[in-house]
Simulated assay, not measured.
Amino acid sequence: MPHIQLTPAQRKVHRAEAHSLDPVVMVGGNGLTPAVVRETDLALQAHGLIKVRVFSDDRAERESIYQQLADQLNAAPIQHIGKLLVLWRPKPVEAREHAQDEARKPGPRDVKVLKYSKRGGQRPEVKVLRVLGNQRLTAGGKVKKARPAKTSAKKQQG
């Protein structure tokens, strides 16, 4: 499988994102084994952008490992500096949807409320309110319990 082709600008963005990352896959003395390829694939599925550390002193061997990983896993080679390899592959759609579902769960959140003065020319007062998962914020800036979920007439009878 050929690896993903990126523009230099895209590659630059991924290099900047990878700067603060730690290596998640280590390639030891046995080289590129099927277990290493499988772990790299799992890491790409989970993170999208990963660093791989190769414990080999031979630069040609590191370069071949870099190209093999990119080709076998359909990943874009981002950077090869010393013993560190940076690979990127877009996350699968299911993983992105799951991450969005996690963000949508109700929980405490801080909401800023502006209270304007009755007199003109005064600065509005900013209040930060904590709204829990079972609460809602009214138009007047007050916190109330959330409305109960409506049930159908058939469910109420049963």
Rank of each mutant, 00 (worst) to 15 (best):
L137C: 02
K12P: 07
L73F: 05
D110A: 14
A60P: 06
A139Y: 02
H14I: 06
L42A: 15
A60K: 12
R136H: 11
L44Y: 03
R59G: 08
A70C: 12
K127R: 07
P77V: 04
K91V: 10
A75Q: 05
R123A: 09
A43P: 06
G120Q: 09
G48I: 04
G48D: 04
K112T: 15
Q10I: 03
E125W: 00
A103C: 07
L6I: 07
L44W: 03
G82C: 14
P23L: 04
P2M: 11
P77W: 03
V111F: 01
I65E: 06
G141P: 00
Q68V: 14
K142T: 06
A76P: 04
T151Q: 12
K150N: 15
S64V: 15
F55H: 15
H3E: 10
V126G: 09
G141A: 02
L137Y: 00
M26I: 12
A70N: 06
G141Y: 00
L84S: 04
W88G: 02
L132E: 12
M26H: 07
G107Y: 04
K142G: 03
D71H: 09
E39N: 11
V113F: 00
A60R: 08
L6R: 05
K144G: 10
V126R: 13
E97C: 13
A60S: 12
K145L: 15
R123D: 11
